[in-house]
């Protein structure tokens, strides 16, 4: 214990870090987010979902009846195309997005449920730094999740292709480019999901409400809106993310999807910041 009180006007000799405050905020977040119960669970779920999606896609292609016009020949053709190696990763994107949304929501809400948020705001009263630090730390974990999903998906696709007789000859023509683009697009898509979970959790301060709200919106409300108005549906977050991860699709070009995704992410962060800046910390 220091032996005397320190004047407000004296520099504190104890302060060792010369890092910018925002870097300190990111590192502080990472110290909590990389706990094994959080990071370990996310890693397991991302890997397991990607693996399951890959197995299901290859076995589904091998066993499809063809009655729906999407039989073995057509699905086999999709899988054997140069982009076939990442089809399963792209197919799992929505499920992975829900996982990222849930973990982003949990990361925010747990600070409220434990009361840790009051310690954070005491330590760093400039609240925008806390929001930015958490967003950056979560973005880092999201890129890690996308990398893991891409790796698992690609590796499992090679194994499943061998098991189900799918030719991989075309996959290697631009392997790095295809896989790299999918990784980048998946990362961006998952970040939008994360931003949605982040914003809902800041507003509701509840993990359950944030997850239910996020998933409920994407799986139910957006589909209902799509049924009511097809033109509107293509501009909504779920459609934009799907198009982005696929590198653009029939309804939305890649550039438009990217712009929409960036807009939704920015909107989520602005809403989070506005709410967090103004709200009392009563947790």
């Amino acid at each position: 214990m220091a032996s005397s009180a320190i004047s407000l006007d004296q520099p504190r000799t104890m302060r060792a870090s010369t890092s910018p405050a925002i870097v300190r905020a990111v590192r502080s977040e990472l110290a909590r987010l990389t706990r094994r119960t959080f990071l370990g669970t996310e890693t397991l779920i991302v890997a397991a979902l990607t693996l399951l999606a890959t197995i299901a896609t290859f076995y589904g292609a091998a066993n499809a009846s063809g009655e729906d016009g999407f039989g073995p020949a057509m699905m086999g053709a999709v899988l054997e195309a140069p982009g076939g190696i990442v089809v399963t990763v792209q197919g799992a994107a929505t499920l992975l997005g829900i996982v990222v949304l849930a973990f982003a929501a949990t990361a925010v809400a747990v600070d409220y449920s434990t009361g840790f948020i009051r310690l954070l705001v005491q330590a760093e009263p400039r609240r925008w730094r806390l929001i930015a630090g958490k967003a950056m730390a979560l973005a880092g974990l999201t890129v890690g999740a996308a990398a893991l999903a891409t790796l698992v998906g690609v590796a499992a696709s090679f194994v499943m292709a061998g098991l189900t007789g799918v030719s991989t000859a075309a996959w290697t023509s631009d392997l790095l480019g295809t896989v790299g683009a999918t990784f980048v697009n998946l990362s961006l898509g998952l970040m939008v999901w994360g931003a949605i979970g982040f914003a809902i959790a800041v507003i509701t301060r509840s993990t359950a409400a944030a997850i239910a709200g996020g998933i409920g919106y994407v799986l139910v409300i957006e589909n209902l809106l799509g049924l009511l108005n097809q033109d509107l549906a293509q501009w909504l977050p779920g459609s934009a993310i799907t198009a982005l991860v696929a590198g653009g699709n029939a309804t939305l070009g890649y550039g438009t999807a990217l712009g929409l995704a960036a807009g939704y992410t920015l909107l989520g962060l602005i809403v989070s910041l506005a709410v967090f800046q103004r709200r009392d910390i009563t947790a």
């Binding site: 104890m14 870090s17 300190r24 502080s28 977040e29 110290a31 760093e124």
Partner: peptide
């Protein structure tokens, strides 16, 4: 230790 370290990092403490 990690709870404290998280706050120490935020405050820039060693």
């Amino acid at each position: 230790r990690r709870n404290l370290a998280s706050l120490a990092l935020l405050r820039g403490l060693p």
